[in-house]
Structure formats: structure tokens, C-alpha cells
Write a protein that binds this DNA or RNA. Structure first.
Lengths: 291, 291
DNA sequence: TCACCTACATGAATTTTATTCATGTAGACG
DNA sequence: CGTCTACATGAATAAAATTCATGTAGGTGA
């Protein structure tokens, strides 16, 4: 008599993800394991049940009859467990929030304002994650992200639009004095930043200077470095306005040529939809919208 | 940001059992592991959740606030999984049924009739488990049990009364001829069987022979052996009537002294309540009630 | 009141299980 | 027809669960 009512529960995690995504490969990515691990786990569950749960088709899998029966039950059960597990963790863990943010935004915008949030919500421990690697929100590393995107439409992610930004070209005031018409800009190095070519060319087009960005332009890893270079009179850089507001106010940076063109995308606060009601996330969201 | 929505699911098995039984020791027994394993698993879950789930009291445990919140959810989720898992296993496993039965009953009653069941339900593969070790039904080893008990009241177990049996004393016909009154029985060895002292003394009392069973009586491990000894003229044994019906009919055994006393307990078919609707169990039950 | 018992805890050793790595297979796609 | 993609598979490795041996604390009975 071989009878073991519950299957090895760990295999269910793999099965649920594979069934939901209809792909072992994607399930593997979601669970941060290899495709091989999912394959083994599913095979082990199938052996345990004495029936196969997936039909293996070329290049993909689909649920078998038994899989169709099993999946909703397993998914529902794991959902319930996950929900209550989070509830218990939340009520017992000290509140903490990791904010994903680009270095430039962190240094030139967020950090100067962050003390106010800490004063208002001292019970929430804030960490910043500015590892440049992710341009998009990465829910594995952060609870909430302050990001720029043209397509705020990833599934299961909430986007709250904070602002659309005007693009401005900035340089040191000395440099600005030497520029009286848009064309004069060509006399100075154009400071390029990886990943922002679109912003630059939109701005250049708006002032009638196509081809402003040359292959020979100095290239920086991030806006932060390019802005510092501009402050030091090394050229002109195009950035969203809020990153240089303080410098414009103090005169550290100046606008050589006016333009009213906007960034094509928007700046958003993003977080996982299912976490929308967590206190720390709500508080940070409410606070940042007032800024 | 430490976030792992699902806890290690294997720890939930231990938690559920411990919470339900309100004892780590009993949970360990149910899951066939050591108490230490449960303790480690629960501790690991508690570490993962960041809060304790049990209050450790001297000699026992009770659920903490968080435990009270978690337990019903986990129990319900595991129940759902178990239910559907069984469903899938059933529909894909070749039907098989292990019947727990005492050796004597197997040899003298069940096996002679079993072919009829196999003929009627050839799709069900029958195994017998007559390992003497369990006097009670053991759901880990068998699907259904044919057992004798005075208290058919274990939780989660269904009992279907098959019959109550008359106790008869039997011996070879040669021995029977030498016995004309109850007292004559004392001239022959009384064949004792471990675990049936009660039956013997009830019978002895009913015919006015208290103290019939002596310390010097030969003792057998099971009725089967004692009956064989009686067949071979080695003495008198008291057994439930159905075990010797065939021998009485053929004259291999005889009843030296009549009595109408019944066994205090009954003969039951037992199985886990939750498995009452399985086809193999229902079929065996229906068949055996006709015998 | 003092052994002794019972139930749970704990750390190290061990066994079992999960995962990776390296490679294989089969069909789709250019 | 090669090449790519997604999954399978077996051996090696890493991680996790379990046991074993022992400890602790409170309760129980001589």
C-alpha cells in the first residue's frame, strides 16, 4: 500500500509557476533557479502522482487533463498561504523599504529630500538601491522603484505617474555666456550619456540642430557624471529639468538655449500590485507625490 | 529587502500537524519522524516568519497569536491539496487494496472466500497484511482492516460492524467423546492464546468453570496455531465460532460443551473516514457484508 | 524533597533532497 | 541543413531535512 496523501510540497512551487507561465524556462527565471531544476521537480511530482501533469510539445508545454485539475487547486492553496504568510511577516518585521532609484536621481533629487520622509515616518527604515544594472523596476531587489519609462505596462506592476519632465540643455554659466544662438552649441563638446540618446536627439531636433551628437562626443555612464562635467565647464548636456533645478537656481549651471520639448516618457513610482496596500509603500507613495 | 512570500513549504507539514495535535511529539509520530525533526522544522518556520508560532509551556505547546492566525489557513490549504492529490492519484493508479487481517482470520475465513471477490472485481488488486504486530487498524500499512475490538471509537476511523460472534470451545472429536460434562474439560490441556484471555475466561465462567486457564497451559501466538493443535487432539481452545465453522461441519473439530456466550467486542471493517468514498474500499465493504 | 519522567531544544553528524552542470534530443525556423 | 529553443537526463554538488546524542525545565510520585 503506497499512500502518501501530500506530495513533497516543494515540488508544488515549481509546478504552480510552470503551469501558470506555461513554460519551465520562465518558471525557472521567476524562481531564480535553472530550467533543469524545474524539470526535475515537475518530473518528481509527476512520478509521485503517477501521472503526467504536462504535455510536452515541441518548444513548449501545456497542462494535461490531470494538470488542469491540479493547477487551480494548488495555485489557490499557495495563494492563501502566501497571503497569510505576508500578513504575519509584516506585523512582526520592523518596517523597511528599499527604494530603487537611478544614482543621478538619488544624489540630485531624492537624498536631499529624504530626511523629511525619515522625520515624518521614522518607523520605516529606508534603503536605497542604485545599482545601475536595472533600468526597469526589479521587484526582487526593491520594494518600490522611482523610474523613467515610456511604457508603464508591465503585468502585475503598478505605476503611479509622478511627473513628465521638460528637457533642458545645461552647461556652466561661463560656457553659456559664449552661446548666443543654438548653432553656437556646436563649438562645445556635447556630453553624451549611455541610454539617453533619444532625449538628446529630441532636444536637438527641437532647436533645429540635427546631428548634434557626434560619435566623438565624450560618453558618460550616467547623467550624474555628465552633469558634474558640465558644472566644470566641460560641455553641454541634455537632462530632465528636475535633476538640475538646484544648480540652475544657484547659478552653478545655466541654460544656454531655451526649448520647451518634453521627455517622451514619464517618471513613475512602481511597485508590485499585490503589495499596494502595505503601509510602508503607501506612506512613501503619499509622501513622494507631495514633493 | 528580504522578501520570500512563500515559506519553505515542507515546514508547513510539521507546523500543521503540531498545531492540530498541540504536541510536537505526537506530530512526530503522525509524520513518522523524530520529535527533533518537528522541533527543527517549526523553529525554521518561525525564523522565516520572524515570529514564534507556539508558546512553549512546560510539557506542552500552545499556539501563539500568530500561530492561531496561521494554522487555519495552512490547514485548509494543505487539506485542499491533499484532497485533489488523492483524486489524481486514484484516477491514475491501478486500483489496489491492502487488507489488514489477523492470520487466523486470513487463513480460516478470508482467503477461502477471497476468490469470489477477485472474480467479482478483477480490476482491484488485493494484498493481505497479516503482520501480527498490529492488533488495531494501522492506516499506514493497510487501506482497510478486518479487526476485532471492544471500542470501535478511534477518531477519523470508520467502523462497520460485520458480526458479533458466539464463543465456542472446540477440540478434536476424539477428545470431545471423552467429555460428557463441563468439568471433564479439566482433564485436557487448555490451549491459551496470547491476547484472548478475556474470551477464554468469559466462556469458562459461562459454563461454571472459573480458573480453567492455568499458568501451565500451553500458550500459542495466535488462534491459528491453537486451533491446529486442537485438531490434532492436543487440547481444548475457545474461539469465535466463525473461525471453526468449516471444521465443525466436516467433523474435524467438535464442540465438547455447549454455551451461548458471546464475545464482548465485535468484528468490524475499518478504514479512514476520509477514504470512505473510494471505489475499491466501497466494493470490498459491500462484498464482505454479503458474506 | 529528590530522583525520575516527560516534552521540547540544540548542535553536530548524517542522510535525503534539491539544484546545478554538462550534455542530449526533438522540432521550429530561417 | 544547420542553428536555435525549450525541455530531458544523469552525474556531481549544494542545500536541506532528519537523526543522534545530549541538554533543560517543570511536573510527578516515592
Amino acid at each position: 500500500m503506497v499512500r502518501r496523501t501530500l506530495p513533497p510540497l516543494s515540488t508544488l512551487k515549481a509546478f504552480e509557476a510552470a503551469a501558470r507561465l506555461r513554460s519551465f524556462k520562465e518558471a525557472a527565471e521567476e524562481l531564480n533557479v535553472t530550467q533543469s531544476a524545474i524539470s526535475h521537480q515537475v518530473a518528481s511530482l509527476e512520478r509521485n502522482l503517477g501521472t503526467s501533469l504536462f504535455r510536452r510539445l515541441p518548444g513548449r508545454v501545456e497542462l494535461s487533463k490531470a494538470g488542469e485539475l491540479y493547477f487551480p487547486v494548488v495555485q489557490d492553496a499557495l495563494d492563501r498561504i502566501a497571503l497569510t504568510t505576508d500578513l504575519i511577516r509584516q506585523s512582526h518585521a520592523p518596517a523597511a523599504l528599499t527604494v530603487q532609484v537611478y544614482v543621478t536621481v538619488a544624489v540630485r533629487w531624492l537624498i536631499p529630500r529624504l530626511q523629511k520622509f525619515k522625520d515624518a515616518s521614522p518607523e520605516i527604515a529606508i534603503s536605497l538601491d542604485a545599482s545601475l544594472l536595472d533600468w526597469e523596476f526589479n521587484a526582487d531587489r526593491a520594494d518600490i522603484g522611482l523610474i523613467y519609462t515610456r511604457s508603464p505596462d508591465r503585468p502585475n506592476v503598478s505605476y503611479t505617474l509622478l511627473r513628465r519632465e521638460r528637457l533642458v540643455a545645461v552647461c556652466s554659466s561661463a560656457t553659456a555666456k559664449a552661446i548666443s544662438s543654438p548653432a553656437d552649441i556646436r563649438q562645445f563638446p556635447f556630453l553624451a550619456v549611455t541610454g539617453t540618446a533619444e532625449d538628446s536627439s529630441i532636444w536637438a531636433a527641437s532647436v533645429g540642430l540635427p546631428g548634434l551628437i557626434q560619435k566623438s562626443s565624450p560618453v558618460f555612464d550616467s547623467n550624474l557624471l555628465a552633469i558634474e562635467a558640465a558644472v566644470n565647464g566641460q560641455g553641454v548636456v541634455v537632462v530632465p529639468e528636475f535633476l538640475v533645478e538646484a544648480d540652475l537656481a544657484t547659478g552653478t549651471l545655466a541654460i544656454p538655449v531655451q526649448s520647451d520639448v518634453m521627455q517622451p516618457g514619464g517618471w513613475y513610482l512602481t511597485y508590485l500590485q499585490r503589495r499596494a496596500n502595505e503601509k510602508a509603500i503607501r506612506k512613501f507613495l503619499d509622501w513622494i507625490r507631495q514633493q
